[in-house]
């Protein structure tokens, strides 16, 4: 009993708000609201940005995870801790940091602006960067864990047989850690989809350009609470859909 009661309270604490959302949803007008251009626009933008951010994370994060797990770098523990900082950092702080580095007058941003005429804040590219910044540690941690669990001797064997490092990684290592990569990718994508703080701070808010679903939910709450509920239900369904589609195959699999 000493364990069951708090467990039930914990379960209710997690589930009741979601049920409440469904109870309060304006089911009668739901289809009309779902088909409204503003919801479609926000949903499309969210899916596109989260997917692009995930691609960025894969391209940069998998090699980074490999470096952390296998690379011969000094101070690896410190490096690993630094990589996970965005994981525990409040996303708003990440947004502020991005603004001061990549903004038009930022450390790096001023040169992007002066040399290439590129200004990232208030653009869809800015949303992708903000999401990637917040989501990448999820992928790196997941892939690094898989790499460390995998036996490096297979790679070494491939190397002794004449495979280059890249070939060994691609043909031997990657297939063996695939479940970890997939789980990390899903986590990363879900985190990017829900990103709010860094996005609104760094990329601002403009419908069709930077207003992703979480921003739309927050903004709609002020003017049209019913619309906020509809948007929330959509995000809830997308989240549950992702979990349901991937759970049996990968997340609870032998990764």
């Amino acid at each position: 009993m000493a364990l069951v009661l708090p467990a039930v309270v914990g379960l209710a604490f997690l589930l009741v708000p979601l049920v409440g959302l469904l109870v309060r949803a304006p089911w009668g007008t739901l289809p009309a609201r779902l088909l409204s251009p503003s919801v479609g626009e926000a949903l499309r933008l969210s899916l596109v940005c989260a997917s692009l951010a995930t691609v960025v994370c894969l391209v940069l994060g998998v090699p980074l995870a490999w470096l952390l797990a296998r690379g011969d770098v000094p101070g690896r523990g410190v490096l690993r801790a630094l990589v996970t900082v965005p994981l525990v950092l409040p996303p708003v702080v990440g947004g502020v940091a991005l603004l001061f580095v990549l903004g038009r007058r930022g450390l790096v941003g001023q040169y992007l602006d002066a040399w290439f005429g590129v200004s990232l804040p208030f653009t869809t590219a800015g949303v992708v960067l903000a999401e990637a910044f917040v989501a990448m540690p999820f992928l790196v941690i997941s892939v690094e864990g898989a790499l460390r669990a995998a036996d490096p001797r297979y790679e070494e064997a491939a190397a002794t047989l004449g495979a280059s490092r890249w070939l060994a990684f691609r043909r031997v290592t990657l297939p063996s850690i695939l479940p970890g990569v997939v789980a990390g990718t899903v986590l990363c994508w879900a985190r990017a989809l829900g990103e709010f703080g860094a996005t609104i701070t760094f990329a601002g808010n403009f419908p069709g350009e930077t207003t992703t679903m979480p921003l739309a939910v927050y903004l709609a709450l002020e003017t049209e609470p019913d619309a906020a509920i509809v948007l929330s239900v959509v995000l809830l369904l997308v989240s549950v859909g992702v979990l349901a589609a991937l759970r049996d195959r990968w997340i609870s699999g032998p990764s």
Partner: peptide, 8 residues
């Protein structure tokens, strides 16, 4: 007006 961002 053609704003780039609309703030709260």
């Amino acid at each position: 007006a053609r704003p780039d961002t609309v703030e709260q």
